[in-house]
Amino acid sequence: MKLTETTPGCSYAVRSIEGDSHLMNRITAIGITEGAALWTVKNDPKMPVLIYLRETLIALNRNDAERISVERDE
């Protein structure tokens, strides 16, 4: 599923990221890489998605979050 469709309080693993090299650079530099574990903290409509990843609370705008696929991590 897309990162924008995740439920707050649940944990996920990043499966794939779509985008050009510019976006990819920005996303991976902040620590969002394939296989990385994350919690969705807040996912309100029209607001950036808040995730917790590598000990960091990160706000990610919805357009970019759409391009990140994750799977549920039990």
Partner: peptide, 13 residues
């Protein structure tokens, strides 16, 4: 435009 992008930002504790 090439450097313009949506927000990707950490929220420090």
């Amino acid at each position: 435009d090439s450097t313009r992008s949506g927000m990707i930002m950490e929220l420090p504790p």
